[in-house]
């Protein structure tokens, strides 16, 4: 077991001027080589915790320690050599080039005038290689897409060569392929470099797949810690995102819109590979899936062709697409309403 790099003891976070405590009693630890995702609904305190851990905001009570040393005892320069940040704020400097930006990451290691040594150059090269951003080095920042921009900000943090990297919502504003790529990259970095990485994110399904550990805030500021799968099985996810209208489906690990309780219900059976998508279609259409329902749908393959057999009130229809199945169900329901 690794010795923890970042620890907090009985930490309270919030805003003293507004007399608002966001969360309290937080005792957390983050070990080298770990990817930790901080999750929670909007306003639960993710950003406040990130800012406090980064030393940008003072805790209301308790301590944050980096390798056993309280954050308040570490000088700004020393801290910069041990912890780097990627912030959610957008940096606007049109004429700066990516190469210059990444080289700025060496600032805590260089002298008064920032002259780069061979070691600095090597670290910059390494950061560009790890993030696969060599091809962007001559581009200006304003020429980059949002995904590229976040990646080069990460490259800058890597050039800073710290044991710990904190990222505040690095996947916000990114499209799906870029979000997946960013998470894959972060996970790969923890494995390749042994760095500890903490990121806050809204990407539940990506966090479930990529994180070693989740820190999960609920709406009341309670923090649950554990392996993603444990948090799913103990119901912490349901509690954290408890809201009317949808629920967390433990079997699929996704949030699903809650069907209307007074709506129609269907009994579903048949071939396993067809069931998943049939279930989704039926739920979207507003049907609850219940074993006691008097409408039945059976999905099966016949001569390599998918079939759905729908039975209700003694009548049976057989269709060969989900679209036709939903059409038949709709016709039936409108008959009943008349």
């Amino acid at each position: 077991m690794n010795t923890p790099l970042l620890t907090t003891h009985d930490l309270s976070i919030g805003y003293p001027t507004q007399q608002r405590t966001v969360a309290q009693g937080l005792t957390l630890s983050l070990a080298a080589g770990q990817l930790v995702c901080l999750l929670g609904p909007n306003g639960a305190g993710k950003s406040t915790l990130m800012r406090t851990l980064a030393g940008l905001q003072t805790p209301l009570a308790g301590t944050v320690k980096l390798a056993g040393q309280p954050l308040t005892d570490i000088s700004t320069l020393d801290l910069a050599r041990r912890m780097s940040l990627v912030l959610a704020e957008r940096v606007d400097m049109g004429t700066m080039r990516v190469g210059e930006l990444v080289a700025l990451g060496r600032a805590p290691h260089t002298g008064r005038f920032g002259r780069l040594t061979a070691i600095d150059q090597a670290r910059i090269e390494q950061a560009l290689t790890l993030t696969n951003t060599h091809r962007l080095a001559d581009r200006r920042l304003h020429q980059l897409s949002d995904g590229e921009r976040q990646t080069v900000m990460l490259a800058r943090a890597l050039a800073q060569d710290t044991d710990l990297i904190l990222l505040d919502e690095p996947t916000a504003h990114l499209d799906l392929p870029n979000r997946v790529e960013m998470m894959r990259l972060l996970r790969q970095l923890t494995r390749q470099t042994g760095k500890a990485i903490l990121l806050s994110t809204h990407e539940l399904d990506l966090a479930l797949q990529a994180a070693d550990t989740l820190w999960l805030f609920d709406a009341l500021g309670q923090l649950a810690v554990g392996a993603p799968e444990d948090l799913v099985l103990t119901g912490a996810f349901d509690a954290a995102f408890d809201k009317a209208g949808f629920y967390f489906d433990r079997s699929t690990g996704t949030f699903t819109m809650q069907p209307d309780e007074n709506g129609p219900s269907v009994r579903l059976s048949g071939n396993e590979s067809l069931l998943f998508w049939t279930r989704r279609a039926l739920r979207r259409e507003g049907f609850a899936i219940q074993d006691t329902a008097d409408r039945t749908v059976e999905a099966f393959f016949q001569q390599g062709q998918a079939h759905w057999q729908y039975t209700y009130a003694g009548q049976t229809y057989t269709v060969t697409s989900v679209s036709d199945l939903l059409g038949a169900l709709r016709d039936d329901l409108s008959e009943v309403r008349k």
């Binding site: 700004t76 320069l77 910069a80 700066m96 600032a107 800073q160």
Partner: peptide, 23 residues
Amino acid sequence: FTLSKSLNVLLLGDNYARSMGLN
């Protein structure tokens, strides 16, 4: 001129500048 490195780092904003060791 002695402040040129600080000016470069400050281009990224106060929070980044601080995280990169600047007073």
